[in-house]
Nucleic acid binder design. Structure first.
Lengths: 132, 132
DNA sequence: ACAGCTATTTAGAACCATTATAAAGTAGGA
DNA sequence: TCCTACTTTATAATGGTTCTAAATAGCTGT
């Protein structure tokens, strides 16, 4: 499906800026992790038009709200996003601030034994911090 | 052991400010989660002397470095700290933004099978997001 | 107890990611 | 085309955190 249809179906107008950001984020086999700062650089590299920083923030948040991106819970001064929206986990290299995907099979079975009344588990995220 | 000895043994001078913060953080059976902002309020409530915000930051970071506190990886504009430094994890209730402790035994054994060359695992944190 | 040294505290400034603002531009339906 | 609501944009504002540099306080050797 074309990005323009995907966006329209989500109630988002397929603007030029959004379509260009879609290409950068989703036109690849590989999923990846990024901060707004890194995305901004990538946009500057790959796109001739300028997209303002505010629009980048707006777009990423709109995509996150629609479920096309998710935030990675991490202690950092910047927010990390992930184009891989399936349940999976991460190594976080404290030295260079880089994230590495961890397959579910790399972590072993996770079974949350405790229940909270009236609540469902939406996601389980494992963060493995690495040091030298 | 007295806090002053504990601090000295860690190479931290037992200053009045650090000892007062110790009392607030550790003079309780219960462990808890807090932000700098919340700790600042608690200090204002419980202590007559003023402790500057910079000192609160310095102290919390010093304690974290020595392993008396740990950060909780979560997406928030503020950093959450935990006085419970044992292996344990958290439920995160998306509705009200509250954290709930999850004992290590509630999660089952975690075995990270993948290795990264030249890196050691510093910590493993599990965040279980809850929805209604 | 004192001197001298270093660690620590402090107020305020600086930093920087993120959010808000408000004006100009754009998509899509009638 | 016209209208309206949505979107983009530059810029300002916000707010948590870190930095700075001067004052203060703990520690060690004498």
């Amino acid at each position: 499906m074309k990005y323009s249809d995907k966006l329209r179906n989500s109630g988002l107008r397929p603007t030029k800026q959004r379509l260009q950001i879609c290409e950068i984020l989703f036109d690849t086999e590989k999923t990846f992790h990024f901060t707004i700062n890194e995305l901004e650089k990538k946009i500057k590299d790959k796109i001739d038009d300028k997209i303002s920083l505010a629009t980048i923030y707006n777009t990423v948040h709109a995509f996150e709200k629609k479920g096309y991106l998710k935030q990675i819970p991490i202690n950092s001064n910047q927010t990390y996003f992930d184009t891989n929206i399936t349940d999976h986990h991460h190594f976080y290299d404290l030295k260079d601030g880089k994230l590495i995907d961890l397959e579910n099979s790399d972590v072993g079975p996770l079974k949350i034994k405790r229940k909270i009344n009236g609540k469902k588990i939406k996601s389980i995220e494992v963060l493995v911090k690495l040091e030298d």
